[in-house]
């Protein structure tokens, strides 16, 4: 290629990336720097006249709370169980919907609408549905004879985590289904034709043709979902507010608590940074573990 041509390409690359880079660095990374600073200060809404540096005190205070172990365990449960079910159901749904059937558009609308509700709204809807006194889920189970006594889905620590995770699965399947369906549509039919000629069964087609082809999408959607579920306090906040007795707190609801009840932005930012560190470690591990699959999609 001639140098002139190369220059034009460079200009094209530069101009195409410019808006995205400006937006992200100007309005995400720049404000964050300040937020990170707050984590090392005594920064509480109750007294903003004295916001001196306190070193790692906020981190010590947050990690030193006796609940911290439960919170970490809940966070892990919340992310892993939600993710596994969201992915499995979403992928199954995408496969079933790939071939198309009459009314698929409408069907999609009705199974994907959950994605269009805010997490907080879903939280309060499910709080009502799961209510231990007047909730419709208890009523249905009683009428069906499955239970004889109402279950305190949100007031019994044994059930509370289960209930919020069910709501989260309900909410999040749509994302995987939409993204994987779009990816499935792009698998060239020649690949299936070739596999048909080779006499491959449905299952071996799935594992030898389909999944390898859409692997980049799977890998990046899974990584994103892990991060998003991790950073999704809205639903739990709306449903149980972290209760009963803190049994449904995850790191990010704990962070919200610090802001709403204590006004302690210093400690809240410290929790935020702990979240980022955990997620970065996850990402490094994830990229390392999936390198063999030639993902490299980040």
């Amino acid at each position: 290629m001639k140098p002139f041509r190369l220059n034009r390409t460079q200009t094209f690359i530069f101009l195409s990336l410019l808006p995205a880079v400006l937006l992200v660095f100007g309005f995400t990374y720049f404000p964050i720097l300040k937020g990170i600073d707050v984590a090392f200060r005594n920064y509480s809404l109750f007294n903003l006249t004295d916001v001196h540096y306190v070193g790692l005190d906020n981190f010590r205070a947050v990690m030193g709370t006796p609940q911290f172990g439960t919170i970490l365990k809940n966070t892990a449960l919340w992310v892993i169980i939600s993710l596994v079910f969201q992915f499995a159901i979403g992928f199954l749904l995408a496969l079933l919907m790939r071939k198309g059937f009459r009314g698929r558009g409408i069907y999609q609308g009705f199974v994907f609408y959950s994605w269009a509700l805010s997490g907080f709204l879903i939280g309060i809807i499910f709080r009502w549905l799961f209510n231990g006194q007047i909730g419709v889920i208890n009523d249905l189970l009683l009428n069906a004879g499955i239970i004889t006594e109402r279950i305190g889905f949100l007031s019994d620590p044994k059930w509370a985590m289960f209930s919020v995770i069910v709501a989260n699965i309900w909410y999040g399947v749509a994302f995987f289904a939409i993204m994987l369906l779009a990816a499935l549509q792009s698998v060239p039919s020649e690949l299936y034709e070739a596999a048909d000629i080779d006499g491959a069964s449905g299952f071996s087609q799935l594992f030898n043709v389909t999944i390898p082809y859409i692997m980049p999408t799977i890998l990046s959607t899974v990584a994103l979902r892990v991060i998003w579920i991790f950073n999704f306090p809205d639903l739990i906040y709306g449903m149980t507010n972290g209760g009963p007795a803190g049994s449904t707190h995850i790191l990010t609801t704990y962070m919200l608590d610090k802001i709403i009840f204590s006004g302690d932005y210093g400690q809240a930012s410290a929790i935020g940074i702990i979240c980022i560190i955990i997620l970065l470690l996850f990402l490094v591990f994830y990229m390392f573990a999936t390198k063999a699959e030639k993902a490299g999609d980040f």
Binding site: N131, G132, Q133, R150, G152, L154, S155, D156, T240, N241, G243, P244
Partner: peptide, 12 residues
Amino acid sequence: SPKDSVNWAFAE
């Protein structure tokens, strides 16, 4: 009190 009220806030 109802068992559920362990998590009742104002509205409930």
